[in-house]
Design a protein around this nucleic acid. Structure first.
Lengths: 112, 112
DNA sequence: TTGACATGCAACCAATAGGTTGCCTATTAT
DNA sequence: ATAATAGGCAACCTATTGGTTGCATGTCAA
């Protein structure tokens, strides 16, 4: 059960491309798809999709399992969960304070 | 009070660089810093930092207010909150199911 | 008013990302 | 056995990114 979580930086970088977030969404809708299935209806060559999937894999967002000549892709929810818990969580804590600071400054700036 | 939230893609792209996440962390520690302050102890020219800050600004993660010749930078917590709610939230819902699917497949693969 | 300070703007450069094409390998089905 | 299918690998191209340097502008302080 190794490498369920991953380097935060790899995860953020992987999530930065809309094509890759789309692939994750596809897997969320139906897990365990082959490369061919993931390619369908995408305006890209198979090789390009492979590259995106490799980025997702390096970030541990996707785990691949070979079954004969087919490569099945499974979503690993752990890294996304961790980003939510550890990274976004930090900002949630000071959130309301930061928001009111910002609003106050913006008003000062308009009126003053 | 315009543009508190932002295009999800711009936010993800802005968060993809560790330098920019560091800048956000700095502002979380002390809000309202000037460009000069944000540059201190960074191994980069002022102009490079400016570019990173512009990316954060375009993503509405940072809001700037001019005060004389100084540009103050404020953290806007809204986009991060929205990413957490809308995007990460989607994956949290199916999380435990996806995790057990994955583990099952991994075990099948090892033993079978 | 003159100098120092805070920042902006533009041109330029190297590295990386994202895509393509072409060809190779392994597995399945006829 | 052979053909079709699923996918990998490598070379290549272009656009973008992340940084630099040099110079210009506006504000504050002596």
């Amino acid at each position: 059960m190794a490498a369920m979580s991953a380097d935060v930086d790899l995860v953020f970088k992987a999530l930065a491309a809309p094509e890759r977030r789309l692939l994750l969404d596809r897997l969320r809708a139906r897990n365990g798809q082959t490369l061919g299935e993931l390619c369908a209806h995408l305006e890209m060559t198979r090789q390009a999709v492979t590259k995106h999937l490799r980025v997702l894999e390096k970030a541990s967002l996707v785990v691949c399992i070979w079954q004969g000549r087919e490569k099945l892709h499974y979503l690993n929810p752990v890294p996304i969960h961790e980003i939510g818990e550890k990274w976004i969580g930090k900002y949630e804590r000071g959130r309301l304070r930061a928001l009111s600071e910002l609003k106050k400054k913006l008003e000062e700036n308009e009126n003053g």
